[in-house]
Write a protein that binds this DNA or RNA. Structure first.
Lengths: 198, 198, 198, 198
DNA sequence: GATGAATGAGCGTTCATTCAT
DNA sequence: GATGAATGAACGCTCATTCAT
């Protein structure tokens, strides 16, 4: 099973090719290197055609990240089994996030740039994330209700356990740490201590 | 005592005004909205004058963030007392970071945009941060040697305890959570569990 | 039959207009006065449009002079008949150069400015000239082999006979001399003495 | 005896330094690379000071070339002996021009750029040249009157004999020909044939 | 006389977007 | 639907010149 993303295989062929080229361009040249002209060339589509499928650059980028997030969520939740013990659910998710980010090293940077660009609407994003990751929210809810997790707001619990994985992977990719399985397991336990009662 | 930054009050007056305007422009329009022409207008300075004080846009941005980081480090470390008990040192720092980010709500976004821009040099940054926050590194080192903290790499301990503060403040500012003193204290304890042995 | 150049009448209409405006601008304001903004205005074209037809200013200038040189060569060699006696070939060419330079008084100055500008590549130019003026080179070769011309390097013979025409026309245009037919005929004979044996 | 120019050793020290730096800058970076800021730096003088000695850039350049031409004329006429036979006078001058241009390979290019720049006033130049090279004009006049030279206008005779030296040296420096003593002597004789009766 | 900080018009170039075909 | 030529405002940057000190 690969963690590499394979996307955009639906709807209009042109639309898919454009979004695919968007990803490729961002990966190769960074968020700032995304110009409509380059995008048209790489998509094999005329410049004007971009505007048949997307209102403007903003919309294109928004839709690109919407689809990315959708796909990422599906991939991360594949194998997420709510019937497992809480710790197993959490630990599995932690590893899937780690593996995905290591397999897609540009993803996090690209996402961060998007989230701090003028295109980004934080409220819209929050709603989508809650929908996409509803099972994860449910897991935290269950843990609180069962008295296993501390009675902190769920977003705090998420930060204490999952939000730091991208930060750790980034340090790993830059060579500041080595996030091997052993270190990961220790960190997972550390986070588990953070969110659990007692 | 205010946590609001008051910077650039040294060297040439023009240079200060330019750097101040840089901060204002990034806060108002985002990193992408920083153009030399706008900057000149807001500084009340001619376009060419910018180049008397900075070699080019790269240099200007680099120097802007160098000064910002210097000032932030000084402010965060003010009152950081290595003779206090470990927990007190850590807790005090946690609160100062929180208070600073709440008082300077654009700081984190601006920093993140910079760090994912083509101007950014991660190696140089890493070195500077270790110098600026040397006492904090020493605190973690001491905690490990005393057997209080888990024997994890220091960058991991940093992530588990301090790197999440910006994420939490961001959620606070967006209204997903309320990071009041009570929640903060609970979170501080949670992080403390994460990094401590046992 | 006019000696005035009529160029750029092929390919895209816009491209022609740009090159025509280039010539006009150089004639009116000199090589140094050629800016892309002025060029766009005079061409009746938007600034960005220039870059649809030419990669950058260098390329535009290079292509402008390539086309000019091509057209000039064609015009100067029109009626150049290798079957005529050597003297007739040479004399005819001399007059066509004179007439052309008088009809296009800015041509020489423009050419000289180009050849001393940073855009200019002397090697490339030399090759092109030898190709364009191949029949003239052949004429000199033939003269040497027939023992009519002195056994000097061809470029020296060219200088002794043809390179001075622009200098003379320049003096004529500035009013230092009057290069009428009589003076021309005398000068042609003088040059002929210079290059011929005995 | 060197043919290298040593100039500007008179009048105000600052003025000399500025003109010296002008020559150095043109030699190193070409005519186009001459900016007032660089010139000030290289002269060791403040930008504003340039305008104490010269009205503007035009004037500075004009005065620079005036002094250059003066010095060049003096150097070329050193040893020019009107009492020698005509051919010896002419031959000696030819060689001094050749040697000077080879020793100062940038001189010709710089002069040509100047003469085709907007700073240049051809009438003024013509008058100065006739004054500076008065003995040479006299030589040609004498040759005509003695019936040795063809009764052509003097500027034509100058072109036929001396104006081509720079062209030949340029071809020499670019490697198209080798202007050694032998070739020079042959060319001198060729030019002599061009200007002499018979 | 001498300074050098300051100016601002101008430079070559890019790019999101439009629209006639 | 699809094209791609065309736009023109905006970009980062340079430079001859001025003027308060």
């Amino acid at each position: 099973m690969t963690m590499k993303l394979d996307l955009f295989k639906s709807r209009s062929d042109k639309r898919s090719r454009i979004l695919e080229a968007t990803g490729q361009l961002i990966a190769e040249q960074g968020f700032h290197g995304l110009s409509m002209a380059k995008l048209a060339r790489l998509s094999g589509v005329a410049a004007g055609t971009l505007y048949l499928y997307f209102d403007d650059k903003d919309e294109l980028i928004r839709q690109y990240y919407d689809e990315i997030h959708q796909a990422v969520a599906e991939q991360l939740l594949q194998g997420f089994d709510r019937s497992e013990p809480l710790f197993e659910q959490y630990r599995g998710l932690w590893f899937r996030v780690r593996d995905f980010l290591i397999a897609n090293p540009d993803h996090f940077s690209s996402k961060v740039q998007y989230e701090h660009s003028p295109f980004f609407d934080p409220l819209r994003q929050q709603q989508r994330l809650e929908e996409l990751f509803d099972p994860v929210m449910a897991m935290f809810q269950q843990g609180i209700e069962a008295g296993v997790f501390k009675p902190l707001p769920i977003p705090v619990l998420v930060t204490l356990s999952l939000d730091l994985v991208p930060l750790l992977v980034q340090k790993h990719l830059r060579g500041y740490i080595v996030l091997d399985v052993e270190t990961s397991e220790a960190t997972i336990l550390a986070c588990w201590s953070a969110i659990c009662q007692k």
